[in-house]
Amino acid sequence: MEGLSVADADLVVYLHPSKSSKVSQAILRELSSSLFKFNEAFGGVLLAYDVNILDKQAKILSGVHPYFGVRLKANLLLFSPKSDMLLEGKVVKLSQESIHVIILGFSSAIITAENIRREFKYKTKDNEELFASRSHKRHVIKVGTMIRFLVKSFDEEILHIIGSLMPACTGSIRWLDRNSEEISEFDRSATKSTDREWQEDKTVDEGATPLSYNNHIQKFKKRRISED
Rank of each mutant, 00 (worst) to 15 (best):
E2F: 09
G3L: 05
V6W: 01
L11P: 02
V13I: 15
Y14M: 14
Y14N: 14
H16R: 13
P17C: 03
S21A: 11
V23H: 07
Q25S: 14
I27D: 07
L31H: 12
S33D: 10
S33H: 11
L35S: 04
F36N: 14
K37E: 07
F38T: 04
F38V: 05
N39G: 06
G43K: 10
L46P: 01
A48G: 15
A48W: 01
A48K: 00
A48S: 06
Y49P: 01
D50M: 02
D50A: 13
D50E: 09
V51M: 10
V51T: 15
L54V: 14
D55R: 02
K56D: 13
L61I: 09
L61A: 14
L61E: 13
V64A: 07
H65K: 15
F68R: 06
F68Q: 11
F68C: 05
G69H: 10
L72T: 06
L72Y: 01
L76H: 03
F79N: 01
F79C: 04
S80M: 02
S80L: 01
P81N: 08
S83N: 03
D84P: 01
D84R: 07
L86Y: 15
L86R: 12
E88W: 03
G89R: 05
K90A: 09
V91K: 06
V91G: 04
V91L: 04
K93H: 09
K93E: 13
Q96Y: 06
Q96F: 08
E97G: 05
E97Y: 09
H100A: 03
H100L: 12
V101T: 05
I102Y: 09
I103N: 10
L104T: 00
G105K: 09
S108V: 08
S108E: 15
S108P: 00
T112H: 06
I116A: 01
R118N: 11
F120A: 00
N127I: 07
S133K: 07
S133G: 12
I141K: 09
K142I: 00
K142C: 06
V143M: 07
V143T: 15
R148S: 13
D155C: 13
E156P: 02
I158C: 11
L159T: 07
H160G: 13
I161T: 11
G163D: 06
L165Q: 07
M166C: 10
P167N: 10
C169I: 15
T170N: 14
N179M: 03
E182W: 09
R188H: 05
R188Q: 06
A190L: 11
T194A: 10
E197R: 14
E197M: 13
E197P: 00
E200N: 05
V204Q: 07
E206T: 03
P210K: 04
K219Y: 07
F220D: 00
K221L: 14
I225F: 14
S226Y: 12
S226V: 10
E227A: 12
D228F: 13
